[in-house]
Design a protein around this nucleic acid. Sequence first.
DNA 1: ATGTCCCTGACCCAGGGA
Length: 270
Amino acid sequence: MTSLKIATWNINSVRMRRLIVERLLNEEAPDLLFLQETKCQDAQFPSSDFRKLGYDHFALNGGRGGYHGVGVISRLPLVDVHSRDFCGKGGDPRYVSVAVEVGGQKLRVHNFYVPAGGDEPDPAINDKFEHKLRFLDEMKAWLPTASPDMPDIVVGDLNVAPYEQDVWSHKALLKIVSHTPIECEKLEAVREAGGWVDVMRKFVPMDDKLYSWWSYRAKDWRAADKGRRLDHIWAHPALAEKATGLRVLKDARDWDRPSDHAPVIASFKF
DNA sequence: ATGTCCCTGACCCAGGGA
């Protein structure tokens, strides 16, 4: 029996928050941690801090730093690493994938940071929203479909809360970017096209609230609890069957100088 | 719902992005 524990976290600057990244690695000991919004050039990534904790393997796509950026911190050797540009944009680092060997099987994890999309949910007047919709279309066309010999996982900040109970108020957020019908439909189309299983919703019933993000702007985020589920873990069906646990580490939203996202952690047994 | 936080570039603040 082999187990695998993975975590995904929009960290909102890995340099600013390297201490709470260390805290997550120490307290949760995931085999792999997938980060989004690292805002950090690869050469500036604080790898040595994480090496001290036994994480020796890194896959970084930080571009020129400053904006966006994704990275993977791993205890397991990475047998393959792949970065890709989406929407024909250079210098817009939003994807990196890694492959690891688990229980004699090669397994790939795709780490995404989908564009947030700005404020106005109209692609005709908002280029950022147009970019987000195009990004989702390209994800759908490009991501591999389910195959038994290459079980894949998708993780990341997909910046869409697709279901009614993924937001604090479905009605109030229908015209708010992240929960508009067109985004929800497009994200759902990506998931269905690839035959992916929503691992978070496998563990949390559709009728229950499920959030991974709470705005910095709320006076008391926990009391207001106006959250959204922007972060996701998807797996191919055969792999989703092996999932044994799922947690949103809400407490991390209150750690010292927190990210506005909480880590999402999934465990698998093979 | 215009509030908070982090980045850059250039200066101790403004503007962009989320």
